[in-house]
């Protein structure tokens, strides 16, 4: 016997189902076959996941074969914090889901002599606990630590954050300033792409239908380098950034001039962007407050192209880019000097 319980989805009703189920517990205890169908006011099935076939490959090769077979009809599942939400909200649909969580290689952080490789399925919590990330890639740790909340961070992966390609995503500015190479693998082999050329627009990347993002390669910063990330949101957790900025700086220790510098801005264009004018303005300058303030001004005036939306006006975003660029540079500089 199958019971079907229809409910219009409201908080009260979900509690209502509990009461209903406990009242009729004697019935469904003997017949565990029942289903609950939530419908919205239009009578559409609401918040349920569509029907799909589910695969759990244990190697990258197997995953690519599945991707090759089903192409755009299959979606890859990493932490699911974006994918499952989008499927539930009916923003996307899919016939096949390929889970990456059984591929051990994808959830490792490997340290080589002059670079590290971060697997695509490394979670934010993993990043935060990793010693090499804490010591050498602090801006990336700060990005991961600011993503969502601790529940989300236990699931959300770095590959999913990058493939989601949100202009406001938390790990992207840091990945940009650390000169990250994106590692892609498909039926025709591997390729490496600089992260600057990976994004095409909100939610859009250059990844092909039969490709998988396997990880990221980040050169280990040398001595006299520092980096910092700041995000600005309406509250401290579980929000989408109004703007976010990461800066990386390399100092000539002798005369304290800026040897190298990279700045990345989020939520001020269709993709996260490098702030090239501001970077140029800093090259070979003496590292001091005036230089950092001016770099912020250049980033504000020349590099960012924000829009108005309900999170903030373009004008406010510009102003904040100026402030955050200066602040991230100052902290990055202090870190570089402390080494």
């Amino acid at each position: 016997m199958i019971f079907t319980i229809f409910c219009v989805r409201h908080y009260e009703y979900d509690v209502g189902i509990d009461i209903f189920l406990s009242t009729y517990r004697f019935l469904y205890d003997s017949a565990m076959d029942y289903q609950i169908i939530s419908i919205n006011q239009k009578g559409e099935n609401f918040m349920l996941l569509p029907k799909f076939e589910f695969y759990e490959p244990t190697s990258i090769q197997q995953a690519i074969e599945l991707k090759k077979k089903y192409q755009g009809k299959a979606k890859l599942l990493a932490g699911g914090t974006d994918l499952l939400v989008h499927l539930k909200k009916k923003l996307i649909t899919t016939d096949h889901i390929i889970s990456l969580s059984k591929i051990k290689d994808l959830s490792q952080i490997k340290e080589e002599r002059d670079f590290i490789e971060i697997g695509a399925c490394v979670t934010m919590s993993q990043l935060s606990k990793s010693k090499v990330i804490q010591e050498k890639f602090s801006a990336l740790k700060e990005g991961g630590d600011n993503l969502g909340n601790h529940l989300i961070r236990n699931r959300a992966t770095i590959g999913g954050n990058v493939c989601g390609a949100s202009p406001a995503a938390d790990t992207l500015p840091a990945l940009l300033v650390y000169q990250t190479q994106v590692l892609l693998q498909g039926p025709d082999g591997r390729r490496k792409v600089a992260i600057e050329s990976f994004f095409k627009g909100p939610g859009k990347t250059i990844i092909k239908d039969d490709e998988i993002l396997t990880g990221f390669e980040l050169p280990i910063p040398q001595k006299n380098c520092g980096a910092h990330y700041i995000q600005l949101g309406k509250r401290k957790s579980s929000e989408i950034n109004v703007v976010n900025v990461a800066s990386f700086i390399e100092i000539n220790p002798g005369n304290k001039t800026i040897k190298n510098c990279r700045i990345a801005l989020g939520a001020v264009a269709a993709t996260p962007i490098r702030s090239f004018f501001a970077e140029d303005a800093l090259k070979n300058k003496t590292a001091d407050e005036t230089a950092f303030y001016e770099a912020g001004e250049v980033a504000r005036r020349k590099d960012c192209k924000p829009i108005d939306d309900f999170r903030g006006t373009a004008e406010y975003r510009r102003a904040m880019i100026g402030v955050l660029t200066k602040r991230t540079l100052e902290t990055a500089y202090k870190q570089a000097m402390a080494q």
Binding site: Y11, D14, M47, F54, E56, L77, G79, G80, T81, L84, V85, K88, K89, S99, S101, S125, G148, N149, H150, L151, I152, N154, R155, S238
Partner: peptide, 29 residues
């Protein structure tokens, strides 16, 4: 289940020692 989309935490359970939103994990996972 409050939101079913990872926002509210009403569905929090501890999975292999870490808290997760059980509305964003498939039972098969």
């Amino acid at each position: 289940k409050g939101c079913d989309t990872g926002d509210c935490g009403a569905c929090t359970v501890i999975l292999d020692g870490d808290t997760v939103n059980s509305c964003l994990v498939l039972a098969v996972q």
